Simulated scan of single mutants.
Amino acid sequence: MLAVAAAAVVATGCSGTAASQDATRVPVGALQPLTDTEQLRVADAEQRLIKQCLNRHGFTYWEAERLSLEESRTLGYVADDVAWARKHGYGSRIAAKEDRARLNNPNLVYRKGLSEERRKAYDEAMDGGIDAQVITAEVPGGRTVNRQMGGCVAEAEKKLYGDTRAWFRADKISMNLQQLYVSDVMRDKQFTTALNAWSRCMRRVGHPYGNPGEARQAAKGQSVNSASAKTFAAERRLAVADATCARDASLRSIGTNRETHYLNKLRDKYGEAIDTSRRIQREALTRAQRIVGPRA
């Protein structure tokens, strides 16, 4: 969960048989959330399934550009890999690479080149168009999240996740639990002690920031204004100091421990959703492994 909660705390069908009929079941027992590598495998499998479905409808589809495993890392609020920071800083150049890939997405060019009639057919094949069914989930805080579900996207998700309504509900609940415990973690004595140790360490090496978010925002502001080699070198130096101080303060391990502590307090009310989400993720990974290979 650390990577999932990164922003606020310490980070981190058309044609097949229903996946719910798959004989592969994972006991709910000590289920862990998927790692970054495992999540990428599922995402890549979804892209492959969408492509196969659209091809059957007579359309061309290019799978999303695949970054390497190293490039695809989720930094989280606490980044303590010094070697990665020395090479990539906070990932500004990787983000720029992703932005270029989005801007040059061949699927956008392809869709734009279709006739109006074919474009409408393409949209309906892709996600069911404007008439696709809507699924809903009530998330912590009382909000209701809606999503249209149709076409090849729905087929791909059904093949991977099985009961897409159950998956959507459990996933959205799990992903929105952060707001219920983030403030507790940020006030936790063990975490604040480690965070203060990180800040003192950073000040000693000339970076007067109160938390990793401030350091990263400062680097981001510089990279937005300049993509020069000098700016990137400064980003890398700051990221290395950040990661080194995080290690010295054990900020990641303490943050993970405290996050788990407060998340477990929510299990009486949300434990079923958490376990359902993780079980379905694991089953989706098993299916994904039959569809695509791992990234290099």
Rank of each mutant, 00 (worst) to 15 (best):
A229I: 08
A197I: 01
A194H: 03
D242T: 02
M186G: 05
A233T: 02
H261W: 14
A233C: 06
D242W: 01
A227S: 14
D188V: 05
A194V: 01
M186A: 09
R187I: 09
T231S: 09
S228R: 00
V224D: 15
N196A: 09
S228G: 04
G210V: 00
A233E: 15
L238V: 14
S228L: 02
A243F: 03
A246H: 08
R247I: 05
G206I: 09
S223E: 14
A215R: 06
H207S: 11
Q222V: 11
A234F: 00
R203Y: 06
R216W: 11
Y209V: 10
A243Q: 07
L266F: 11
A241M: 03
R216I: 09
Q222G: 14
V205E: 12
L195G: 01
R187S: 12
S228W: 04
D188I: 00
D268S: 10
D248T: 04
N257G: 06
Q222I: 06
I254D: 14
N257P: 02
W198H: 09
F232L: 10
A241G: 02
A227H: 07
E235Q: 11
D242V: 01
Q222M: 15
A243L: 06
I254F: 07
C201D: 12
A239E: 12
Q190K: 12
H261P: 11
A219H: 09
D184Y: 10
I254N: 11
G221F: 12
C245G: 01
E235T: 03
D184M: 12
T244M: 03
D184E: 15
V185N: 13
R237S: 14
K220F: 10
S253D: 14
S253I: 07
Q217Y: 03
F191A: 02
G221K: 14
L266R: 00
R200L: 13
E259R: 00
D268P: 06
R267W: 14
R187H: 11
N196V: 01
R252C: 05
A227L: 08
E214V: 08
S228C: 03
S250Q: 15
R203S: 13
H207K: 09
V185E: 14
K220I: 02
A233Q: 13
T260D: 13
S228A: 07
T192N: 03
T193P: 05
A246M: 09
A215H: 09
V205P: 05
S226A: 10
D242I: 01
T244F: 06
T256F: 07
R200E: 15
A194C: 00
R236Y: 03
K265S: 14
L238P: 11
R204S: 13
Q217A: 11
E259C: 01
R237Y: 05
T256H: 06
G255W: 05
A243P: 12
A246R: 08
P212H: 07
N257W: 02
W198V: 00
R267E: 15
G255D: 15
R200Q: 15
G255E: 15
E259F: 00
M202Q: 13
W198L: 03
V224K: 14
A215I: 04
R267Y: 13
F191T: 02
A239I: 05
V185L: 12
R216M: 15
D248E: 10
T231Q: 04
